[in-house]
Amino acid sequence: MIVRIMGEGQIGLDESHLVELNKLDDELLAEIQRGDEEGFRRTLGALLDAVRRLGEPVPDDSLEPSTLILPSPDATLEEVRGLLNDDGLIPG
């Protein structure tokens, strides 16, 4: 699957990593619902770091559609709240 981090580019990621990413996504969703800015910032950073660590950058000249789009590291709690669906940022 291809994950886009807004403002950074795309990362190829094996779907086997979704379990680990969903744990962080669930934590992020709970922090957003509580309005926990500090926890939100920490967990968003951990989620994006995990995607970068587990995946491989897709070349800039590749025209692959993104399966999943994640916010930039400097996104605000309110901006991310607007991107959420019932499952958080990551379906499943």
Rank of each mutant, 00 (worst) to 15 (best):
L44G: 02
Q10S: 07
E31C: 14
E37F: 12
T43I: 12
L63S: 14
I32C: 04
Q33S: 15
R34W: 10
L63Q: 10
D36T: 05
L18H: 04
L21Q: 06
L13Q: 01
G55V: 00
G39S: 08
E15H: 12
A46Q: 09
R41Q: 07
S16R: 01
D49W: 08
E27F: 11
G35P: 00
E38F: 14
K23N: 13
D49T: 07
D49I: 07
A30W: 09
S16P: 00
G12T: 05
N22K: 15
P57Q: 05
P59S: 12
D14I: 08
D49F: 12
L13A: 00
N22R: 12
E31D: 04
E27A: 14
I11Y: 11
D14K: 15
G39I: 03
L18G: 11
V19G: 09
R42W: 03
R34M: 07
D49K: 09
I32T: 03
I32H: 08
L21G: 10
R53T: 01
H17G: 05
F40L: 01
L28R: 00
D61M: 10
Q10L: 05
L24R: 11
R53H: 04
S16H: 00
G45Q: 08
G55I: 04
E56C: 02
L13E: 08
V19M: 09
D36C: 11
Q33W: 12
L47Q: 04
G12E: 04
G35S: 11
G55W: 03
P57T: 02
N22M: 12
R42G: 02
I11S: 02
L44C: 09
D25F: 13
D61P: 06
V58N: 04
P57V: 01
F40I: 04
H17R: 02
L44R: 06
R52I: 00
I32F: 06
G39R: 07
P65A: 15
L54Q: 01
D61N: 13
D49Y: 12
L54D: 03
V58E: 05
R42F: 10
L48M: 04
K23H: 09
E27G: 11
L21H: 06
H17A: 11
D49S: 15
E31W: 08
L24V: 08
T43A: 13
L54W: 07
D60K: 12
S16F: 01
D14Q: 14
S62I: 04
R34I: 03
D61K: 12
D61A: 15
N22A: 11
I32S: 08
L47C: 04
I32K: 01
L63T: 10
L47D: 05
E20N: 02
G55Q: 05
D26I: 05
I11N: 05
L29I: 07
E38L: 13
R52C: 03
D14T: 00
V51G: 11
H17Q: 01
D60V: 02
L29T: 14
L24G: 06
E38C: 00
L13T: 01
G55S: 02
